[in-house]
Design a protein around this nucleic acid. Structure first.
Lengths: 261, 261
DNA sequence: GCTTTCGGTTTGTTATTTGAACCGATGGTT
DNA sequence: AACCATCGGTTCAAATAACAAACCGAAAGC
């Protein structure tokens, strides 16, 4: 791995749950030599990608990312365009809606919207990456990636997160085929035991699946009527976001979604 | 300069006016060998900081920056917090308000708001960096930096952008002293000949000046009454944003602003 | 006051980065 | 159709920057 990747990877250790990291900590997390980590950090800091917080000497993400993100959104309004649709989706279904993006082989939540309908809801403030094998979003994305990508993911260790987590590659491939046949994915407690979720893939302008849109509900609220409602809202919102992104649904998905709607 | 800085600097060449850049172009812009540039770009692409646009093979900013920016805003709500204040400022003054951040020794516009009051307004869609010596924002920031920083900037070439641009370091130092004495900066056509602007410095939680807030007006509309109005609105908005940032105004500035308000 | 850990620095060794030349493909010009 | 320039991308010896371990002084815990 090159130096640049190492430096950029450092940025990934900053999370909502852990916004400040000290040099030694970060070196340990990234499994780097302290001197190396220091050099990487100072160079990142020189460019405004991290900054040091006065007294404690810890590091946090810097202001450079703001400018770049504003630029990216201006050119490809990803988050901004999806946000209102996400909110409507949460409100329509009464559950938590969230959108994830496939970035460098990792599926990362980018935005979410909560519903006020229930006192209990699925929270995902601190989720940093969604496991492909254990979430509906993961399966939805996996189903529409090149075979090589799927193989790479399924060859990795697939941790059993709950008693319901499917961890057998062959079984997961069967799930994935089903996702392709249905046009959406479903997970019943595969990630957290009492969370039931449904997801649809999202496509970019080149027809590649670049993310997923999901609704995560408490398992106890997930009756057949609710599933139908969620599926319907999800397919509609998925179409909408893909359109807003200037994306194109693969013909078969477009057909499936139209029939189900 | 290290490899990381070279790579991160590549990201700076993407602008609103130039969102897509080809390999050879970028290599020329950054004055890098094409092979080097290619390696940097692929590593950036591996991490989602740039991506290649299908057919044309040009590069653009990638989705990674979105995630990082969302994280940064969650911890330090810079842009989001300032935006509404900026809009009010534009509306109150009837002119263009903009906010810039000091990032790695460069003053970069981060957000702006236009007023609907006049058919003619100052646009700054494509501005990527504000020269310190020729803009009110630049002078406002410069006035509250460590002496070493000022020296560094004033030792660089100071291009004459208009006939009104002040380019003599000694004269600029006098201007800067005046800015410190007044608590705000002013530029009359130093950047663009028919644009007159006023700016105040913004401070972070450690009392360091980390940016500037400015109102840019057409010179023809800048009478004494308008100047007073802008100054008043600017000082108020500057106080507000600094507060929202959890920042602290230096005691002397706080006094100056209170007296002028 | 002892020990650990912190952020940061120094050093010689090592491995990565670099840049000129080179590809095949593409697209305009004559 | 022959030509030429330029594109994105690749190769490989030479140069340079990254690396790990040991070391600092300062602060914190005990």
């Amino acid at each position: 791995m090159g130096t640049i990747s190492k430096a950029l990877e450092l940025l990934n250790y900053f999370t909502k749950a852990r916004p400040l990291i000290g040099l030694s900590d970060l070196a340990r997390l990234a499994e780097l030599n302290k001197a190396t980590c220091f050099r990487l950090l100072t160079e990142l800091a020189d460019n405004g990608f991290v900054e040091q917080i006065g007294t404690s000497r810890e590091y946090r993400l810097g202001p450079s990312v703001l400018r770049l993100a504003a630029l990216r959104e201006a050119q490809v309004p990803t988050r901004e365009a999806a946000m209102p649709v996400l909110q409507v989706l949460a409100q329509q279904t009464g559950e938590t809606a969230h959108l994830s993006l496939l970035i460098a082989d990792i599926l990362r939540p980018l935005a979410h919207a909560y519903s006020a309908a229930h006192a209990t809801k699925v929270m995902l403030e601190d989720t940093e990456a969604l496991p492909f094998h254990a979430t509906s979003s993961g399966l939805a994305v996996l189903a529409f990636q090149p075979e090589a990508f799927r193989n790479r993911i399924l060859a990795q260790p697939l941790p059993r997160l709950t008693t319901s987590t499917e961890t057998v590659p062959a079984a997961l491939r069967a799930c994935i085929n089903e996702v392709r046949a249905l046009g959406y994915a479903e997970s019943r407690g595969g990630y957290e035991s009492d969370v039931h979720s449904m997801a649809v893939p999202l496509f970019d302008a080149l027809g590649r699946c670049s993310g997923a849109l999901a609704v995560a509900a408490l398992g106890s609220r997930m009756g057949e009527a609710q599933r139908r409602k969620i599926r319907h809202a999800l397919l509609q919102a998925g179409t909408e976001i893909t359109t807003l992104w200037g994306g194109t649904l693969p013909a078969d998905i477009a057909t499936l979604w139209r029939l189900a709607a």
